[in-house]
Nucleic acid binder design. Structure first.
Lengths: 244, 244
DNA sequence: CATTAAATATCGTCC
DNA sequence: GGACGATGTTTAATG
């Protein structure tokens, strides 16, 4: 059963922008970009400082339901405790959590996390690295630009080999059909726009279907793994540059 | 400071597949598909029954770091408490959480959630609905099949209007350039394969660029919003069918 | 503010 | 188990 004292405390805690953890059994209804229902089960509700609401089940990476910031959440205590959340900007979304039983309720005022995640070895890092080391793309590759805009999208790398223009598409994971179709489009557009052109797909791996499509269209595939490249964490890099 | 008693208890709780919540300040290192570091801040660590590990900060939808199932996590208590997680299948991934201070530690044995999320008004629902109501696509549309396979991907709906073959692409959100290029490719392939063909893009909205591209290629756009369709929750539907 | 594309994407489904 | 595409994707960058 839900303790009435707890339920009255929730709205206070929400108003004070406390971070709130509620371990409970509940049912959930959602309606917005799609609709969902789920029956009774044990879940952890987290209301974060930025109004994000997460409802996590006992397994899985994704919350079973959630509301993104900015959201307004209110607790109502009638027959049972109900948490009602509504998105305060478009698109309209709402979530109702019917709480049957609270196993644990906790709220905190002064939790702080001012650190930013320093993430590297992403596609952006690979792009920057190859822009600085164009010979890794091809011994004769001369860079013209990165994120070069075309009507069909952005070329990761753009340059020349001899007299031919070259578009390069990068993937840090195994390339599939979508990546192959992307570079195919780019190369076709480039050929229509500028004459003969080359396309190079760089990835640590490729699916058979994707490779077949590249072969058919004369697009080159080059195996490269971002993991092995000497990319420093940005913070280290900043620090080193600062110290010089 | 970290209580040594707590740290010795963690491995026991992990071994017993308890669900574990640790509210703490910590730093985190991750290395695997990419790499990341983050400095000291307050975070909630969740170790779920399926070995999923989530580390949530005080804001945001996404965990600041995480490990997907299947993962093996061990707690080591040296100078400080360290949680080390390693993925037990490919790709290799590892995460180290250096815990400085535990604000709350909780573990539970008997939390259960056997319910499945009943999600509707997705693209799949729209596809099924239009397969049953082909006249909504076009008054004379006759369905041949759904998820019809081509070398370039799957056609959401495939059929005929008069003597012409028709490929239909569905989006439940506003269609952009990628969606327009997708239906364009499909129509082009169909024309090369079978002769004259039509393409129809169905979506609740479309970006100007995408619409321009469709016009240029003679592809039709039909505005439709899955929200307004009479799609029942699957559970209701099953129940009704069961009762008949 | 809208558009665009990456993501440690995750997740389900189909082959 | 691999491949493929949707996702209530979320998030960040960019014009």
């Amino acid at each position: 059963m839900v303790n009435p004292e707890v339920s009255s405390r929730i709205n206070q805690d929400i108003a004070e922008r406390k971070i709130i953890f509620i371990l409970c059994s509940c049912t959930i209804e959602y309606r917005g970009r799609s609709r969902s229902n789920i029956g009774l089960g044990h879940r952890l509700i987290i209301i974060k400082q930025d109004t994000t609401v997460l409802v996590h089940s006992v397994t899985g990476f994704k919350p079973v339901n959630w509301m993104n910031t900015p959201t307004e959440t209110v607790a109502e205590f009638g027959e049972e405790l109900v948490l009602y959340s509504q998105r305060t900007k478009k698109p309209f979304e709402e979530m109702k959590v019917n709480v049957k039983d609270i196993l644990d309720y906790r709220s905190y005022t002064s939790l702080r996390d001012d650190e930013k995640l320093d993430l590297t070895h992403t596609e952006k890092d690979l792009q920057e690295y190859l822009a600085k080391n164009p010979a890794l793309v091809h011994p004769e590759f001369r860079l013209i630009g990165t994120e070069h805009q075309s009507p069909l999208g952005y070329f990761d790398l753009y340059g020349k080999i001899g007299e031919k223009y070259v578009v390069v598409e990068l993937k840090v994971e195994r390339a599939g059909l979508p990546a192959a179709l992307q570079i195919k489009r780019y190369k076709e557009w480039l050929q229509g726009y500028i004459g003969e052109a080359r396309g190079i797909l760089i990835a640590p791996g490729i699916t058979p279907n994707a490779l077949a499509l590249l072969k058919k269209d004369g697009i080159e595939y080059k195996k490269m793994n971002v993991e092995h490249l000497k990319i420093r964490h940005r913070k280290e890099k900043t620090l080193r540059e600062w110290l010089q």
